[in-house]
Design a protein around this nucleic acid. Structure first.
Lengths: 364, 364
DNA sequence: GCACTGGATGTTTACGCAAACATCAGCCAT
DNA sequence: ATGGCTGATGTTTGCGTAAACATCCAGTGC
């Protein structure tokens, strides 16, 4: 049985030419201990170390203790590259996402990371700098030589559609927060349901119709909210007013809001997200239109700050955490079953009434 | 030279016992092509494939083309586990972070991911559910068997201090956004400078003194902003008013704001972040105290929404992107040099004057 | 013509782990 | 006692890659 310290060094010395640079040998001796080193110290075979390391049965308590002691002594850590090579899996999920500047993406990512961690999976981030075909394509090809078993995409998927998405074999794909027809497995928020609830809420308060501050054209989520808004109005026999668009940012909400504020007939606005609602509130305020007395405003997302807006914002709560959780669950179940399992899972939303909505003026 | 399709299958057939299950063989044939497969198809040795794959010199243009064609035909992708095993590095950086619900952490993370990607490194996320010793410890031990070459911690580091941080050998550590004495390499925002600029700005406008809505006690960042606020006042010969605390959230800012709004002598408040400033604005508004006519408010962070607050918020801009970039740079340079390189790098801040600050009332 | 050079390519080997198989001791039933 | 069985452990092997070393061949200089 070898002594603890010199183990690795001795092994190295064998390889070194006699009288080789001692400094080098010093460095190499510091290399992580391998299973073989542990085995030698514990006086067992490396296979037994492997069994202990993986918690397999069939090892005497006595032996196990010895091996564990040797591991501790040498500071042994299994080499994940070797393990992955042998097992053919990395226990890692790649997440492709465009920007982290929207609350939704971040919250979803966080939930994915937490759920994955709970399942023993790590999460590797693949940022896409610019949401263009080329960049998405690039992310996927970087991914191809990356150590992942599965991929979750948090992104508008029309960029995905045209991209010839060639995944390495056995790598599963799930798309979050997007409507990708049924080419992929999708986990999404019930955009339509949330929108309908928002529009109904305003109509129920007595508003004639509801204006819409929509998100950017290229966003599917925005598209669906806009479609659902129009449908809900038509369903109620109301005339949808002209659409006003922003780009999700508060600043764009402000600019769009200046337009809306100028129209006296506008008494209720459904903003496609809370940030734009914030900008809208500011524009209305600057134009002397009171919220909710003159104009009702409703948002979408329920970001934590929404309750501190002036006035506190009525909005549609999205359960990003649930979306993330379901993404991980879906991707893992695909991995386990190996099947493609197309289809969409919808996560419900919830209307959160606060102080920014009220009956229209003159409806006393 | 073998034909394209059957290559892998043939190799498998050799291993299979004659007449073995064809279904199984089918599946195994779908396995990713290896270098050997490519080599066989291209009619070269696998070492030549390796050379092409890694862009090494010493391969004829003719041969290279053939190899590339074979790779394409087989859909070859280098196996990153095998590569990592051989090279002893993963080209991956682990990021340990507590919550992703603060703008700063997220923006820093995003910058880290982007910078890392540019250097050919991937980023693996290690969320810490609760900021306790145990959890941090847990993240580090999970990390120990994770495939990373370096670690960046975005977290209040007092949790790190006591934790016996045992990293695998050769794994480098850099801490972002924290003040960790000089135990570690730290990249941080110039909290003190930003705070001083904020306080000066208010004093220059004519305010007697500046109140402070501080962050939570357990945060070093908050601690330093509070210290710097007090120091800046004392330096100017003013008396620091009692400290009011929040927990970074808008809601806590609102609650604390109710206190401040009740005090007529309070004409200027420095909030430790923009979210709390938002809550403060709401509290002041509800108490009929106008901003900036009656009370000036200044924030910290410059979140994108700050320009859309009511009124648009004067604040201290933090360059999170730069912090992230420098973290990656620091960690890579440590890896390359191998040295410990303790010390702190400070990233400057910038005051962004908007509409929430003005001279105190009665100073016409 | 011959030894020599250097570039292109092939061959061998080890990285660390774990599956598959081999061994071996102890024990039970016949 | 003998064969078979079970549980603990050891041995062999191969995963895909790339470093190190070996080989081969076309020139070059003499």
């Amino acid at each position: 049985m070898n002594l603890p310290g010199p183990t690795a060094e001795a092994a190295d010395a064998t390889r070194d030419t006699a009288g080789g640079a001692p400094a080098l040998r010093r460095i190499r001796a510091r290399t992580t201990a391998s299973m073989a080193d542990v085995a030698r110290l514990a006086g067992v075979s490396s296979q037994t170390v492997s069994r202990v390391s993986n918690g397999y049965a069939g090892v005497t308590e006595e032996t196990r203790r010895q091996v564990l002691a040797a591991m501790k002594e040498l500071g042994y850590r299994p080499n994940s590259a070797a393990r992955a090579l042998k097992r053919g899996e990395f226990r890692t999920i790649g997440v492709i996402t465009f920007t982290l500047s929207t609350t939704g993406n971040v919250r979803t990512l966080e939930a994915i990371a937490n759920s994955a961690a709970r399942e023993g999976y790590a999460v590797t981030l693949l940022p896409v700098a610019v949401p263009t075909q080329d960049e998405v394509q690039g992310a996927f090809s970087r991914l191809e030589e990356l150590a992942v078993d599965a991929v979750i995409v948090i992104m508008e998927v029309h960029l995905l559609d045209a991209a010839t998405v060639t995944l390495p074999p056995h790598v599963q794909l799930v798309v979050a927060d997007s409507d990708a027809g049924n080419h992929y497995t999708v986990v999404d928020t019930d955009q339509a349901g949330g929108t309908r609830a928002a529009v109904r809420h305003l109509l129920d308060l007595g508003h004639r119709t509801v204006w819409h501050l929509g998100g950017p054209e290229e966003s599917f989520a925005a598209q669906r909210r806009t479609d659902a808004w129009r449908a809900a109005l038509l369903e109620a026999g109301r005339v949808p007013p002209p659409l006003v668009r922003g780009d999700w940012s508060a600043e764009s909400g402000y600019r769009a809001g200046l337009e809306l504020a100028a129209r006296d007939e506008c008494t209720a606005v459904f903003a496609a997200n809370d940030q734009m609602a914030l900008g809208l509130l500011r524009a209305l305020h600057e134009h002397g239109r009171r919220v909710p007395e003159d104009v009702s405003v409703i948002g979408f997302d329920d970001i934590p700050e929404a309750s501190s807006f002036l006035p506190p914002l009525t909005t549609v709560h999205q359960d990003f955490a649930e979306v993330g959780r379901l993404c991980v669950q879906a991707v893992l179940s695909k991995m386990r079953r190996g099947g493609p399992e197309r289809g969409t899972t919808l996560v419900p939303t919830r209307l959160v009434p606060r102080a920014s909505t009220a009956p229209p003026p003159g409806s006393a």
